[in-house]
């Protein structure tokens, strides 16, 4: 029997193929230091600095441009809240693509953190929603538009189900992911009632000239295939005091953002002033993302 021979030959071939592809990851080759990198939550600040520096070097080399990676921690007395004015949203999807650009999100296979659905004015059932509307002009008469993204739950099911603590809630309320710790089991995708979790089905492809070089470890730094990601309220911007990209791009001013602990913040004003609702409130996920109709 020549089975042992063919088996050995086969193992050699497949072993090499498997090994390289198995460990290859980003395409930058395999390095043990990143393989044995700790969970971000368990790193000391010295370790964080070292990892951040290593990543900056790696990304800058890979994209041929300076890429900064910050690990700015959450501010004290800050919990972010987000408001979305359904009266004003015109469904133009500017936010979707601004988000893609800001956050270095995979173009192919396409990932969108924000999904805007169109519904008839009288409709509240998402099953009747149109995800792929494409008229010449928006808004269309008789419809309203509902952008849906990570709701930054205070009782997040994704964090609960993650088997490896790759997901957690930061003290400023942002549900963060350590992309280097995620094993890609996708339990969070099944657990999320808002379909906020996105999976990198292949190595994310981002044109080099479209890279946003200002990144955060828990935010828009380049990802590898096989890990989940989702809206993090542009952590790289909001931790520096700036508005998220979707807020700034919105031509209708339908997006409100601010510190829930600050009674004078825009989000608190909106909560005081309008009757807000939370999406799928009955599931007790306690979103910090509020919808309201400011007009009518």
């Amino acid at each position: 029997m020549n089975q042992p021979f063919s088996r050995r030959k086969f193992l050699k071939l497949t072993g090499a193929g498997l090994g390289s592809s198995f460990l290859g990851g980003c395409g930058n080759g395999f390095d043990w230091e990143s393989f044995f990198q700790k969970n971000f939550q368990e790193m000391t600040s010295a370790e964080k600095n070292r990892v951040v520096q290593r990543l900056e070097k790696k990304y800058s080399g890979h994209y041929g441009m300076p890429v900064s990676v910050s690990a700015t921690p959450a501010r004290e007395n800050t919990v972010f809240g987000y408001g979305l004015d359904l009266s004003l949203c015109v469904g133009c999807r500017r936010c979707v693509y601004a988000c893609v650009k800001e956050n270095n999100i995979s173009r192919d296979v396409q990932i969108h953190y924000i999904r805007v659905v169109k519904m008839a004015e009288s409709e509240r059932n998402l099953e009747k929603a149109d995800h792929y509307y494409s008229p010449a002009k928006v808004p269309e008469h008789g419809s309203y538009y509902m952008p849906i993204q990570c709701q930054q739950c205070d009782n997040p099911p994704c964090v609960k189900v993650c088997p490896v603590k790759a997901l957690w809630q930061e003290s400023d309320g942002i549900v963060a992911i350590d992309y280097d710790w995620c094993i890609g089991c996708r339990d969070c995708m099944a657990a999320c009632p808002y379909r906020a979790m996105k999976f990198n089905w292949r190595t994310p492809h981002i044109p080099k000239n479209e890279i946003n070089g200002e990144t955060h470890f828990l935010g828009n730094r380049p990802r590898v295939r096989g890990v989940v990601e989702k809206c993090h309220l542009c952590i790289q911007r909001v931790r520096e005091g700036r508005y998220p990209a979707c807020v700034e791009i919105c031509p209708a001013g339908a997006r409100k953002f601010g510190n829930l602990l600050d009674p004078a913040s825009e989000i608190r004003m909106a909560l005081n002033h309008f009757r807000t609702f939370k999406l799928k409130e009955e599931l007790n996920t306690q979103p910090k993302f509020f919808y309201f109709f400011s007009l009518g």
């Binding site: 508005y243 700034e248 409100k256 601010g258 600050d262 825009e266 002033h273």
Partner: peptide, 27 residues
Amino acid sequence: NDWQHGIHGKRIGNWDGRKQYYLCAAC
């Protein structure tokens, strides 16, 4: 009043500091 308090209309800049209000006529 809504606009003044930032709950109507568009603002850009910093959520906790220097921000820019878009005038009514901008939209």
